[in-house]
Amino acid sequence: MILVTGAAGNAGRQVVAALLAAGEPVRVLVRGERADGPSWPEGVEVVTGDLRDPAAVARALAGVRRVFLLLAEDGGAGFAEAARGGGLERVVVLSSKAVSDQEFAGLDNPLYAKHLRGEEAVRALGVPWTFLRPGGLASNALRWAGSVRREGVVRALFPELAAPLLDPRDLADVAVAALLADGHEGRIHTLTGPEIITVREQVAVLREETGREIRFEEISEADAPAVLGPGLPKGFIDIYIPVQKQYLKTRPVVLPALREITGGPGRTFREWARENSAAFR
């Protein structure tokens, strides 16, 4: 039995699908409001509970030997408390490229802190581990879906911000390899997509793939808390802006890990947009 946490998210759902396709038995740990409904494929065992609650994690871990771990806001403390001494064979952690990016040096960034604490907590378990450190995901564009459907507009900071976005399905392919195949223990895989694309270019691709007239509105730094803040954790914008400004000064790079592990270059943002265009209509 393989446990997938964070299974209701964009990456977790793809990991569940890929494991099922490989014929593996899958259990998911999800919060109660996400447990019901027709969205879980047949054969997936569902355990409800919060990843920060060691008792819930212990229930989910019963009979499990391998785990795909999405870190909660406690930095993996609840998971580690429940998993210690439980006989796990392997833990694959969905971490973040932020842990190793020098752009975050000196910045009080919660994304960096959460994933760094989570990696440390899993290392301390004494269980074979693999850390996956993706950069930006193509599915992050879904944050624009609501405004595109309602108004035909994308509002964002820094239109020239560029990144090699990773399709969640490619992330899932790497996760499944790390869960099932030998040779990934004790390794850190830093993952990117196959091409560098700016925010403005993403909007252009969405326009072409959806057939909609989508306009782009650049948000000023002063307006960002009012426009973007309501849907984000308190204080996040104050941290997000300086981090993104640091990234604007760097040159993004496509890394080879995805091709080395999966044998393919990975899916482009256009491929992701084509397959997810219904979300923007």
Rank of each mutant, 00 (worst) to 15 (best):
Ile2Gln: 06
Ala7Ile: 09
Gly9Asn: 08
Gln14Thr: 14
Val15Ser: 01
Ala18Phe: 05
Ala22Asp: 09
Gly23Gln: 04
Pro25Ser: 11
Val28Ser: 05
Leu29Lys: 07
Gly32Gln: 07
Gly32Lys: 04
Arg34Ser: 15
Asp36Arg: 14
Pro38Ala: 15
Thr48Leu: 11
Gly49Cys: 14
Leu51Ile: 15
Leu51Ala: 14
Ala58Tyr: 10
Ala58Arg: 12
Ala60Gln: 03
Arg66His: 14
Arg66Gly: 13
Gly76Asn: 04
Ala77Asn: 05
Gly78Ser: 02
Ala80Ser: 15
Arg90Glu: 06
Leu94Tyr: 15
Leu94Ile: 14
Val99Arg: 10
Ser100Glu: 15
Asp101Cys: 09
Ala113Gln: 14
Arg117Lys: 12
Gly118Asp: 11
Glu119Asn: 12
Ala121Leu: 06
Arg123Cys: 02
Trp129Thr: 10
Trp129Lys: 06
Gly136Ile: 01
Gly136Cys: 00
Ser139Leu: 07
Asn140Met: 06
Ala145Cys: 06
Gly146Pro: 13
Ser147Tyr: 01
Val148Ala: 02
Ala163Ile: 12
Arg169Ala: 15
Ala175Ser: 08
Leu180Val: 10
Asp182Ser: 07
Gly183Ala: 04
His189Phe: 13
Thr192Lys: 03
Gly193Phe: 02
Glu195Asn: 03
Ile196Asn: 04
Val203Ala: 05
Glu209Trp: 00
Glu218Gln: 13
Glu221Gln: 11
Ala224Leu: 05
Pro225Trp: 03
Val227Asp: 11
Leu228Gly: 09
Leu232Gly: 09
Phe236Met: 15
Ile239Asn: 09
Tyr247Pro: 02
Leu248Ala: 06
Thr250Arg: 14
Val254Glu: 13
Pro256Tyr: 01
Thr262Ala: 04
Gly263Tyr: 11
Pro265Tyr: 08
Gly266Tyr: 00
Gly266Trp: 01
Thr268Gly: 08
Glu271Asp: 12
Glu275Gly: 03
Asn276Phe: 06
Asn276Trp: 06
Arg281Thr: 11
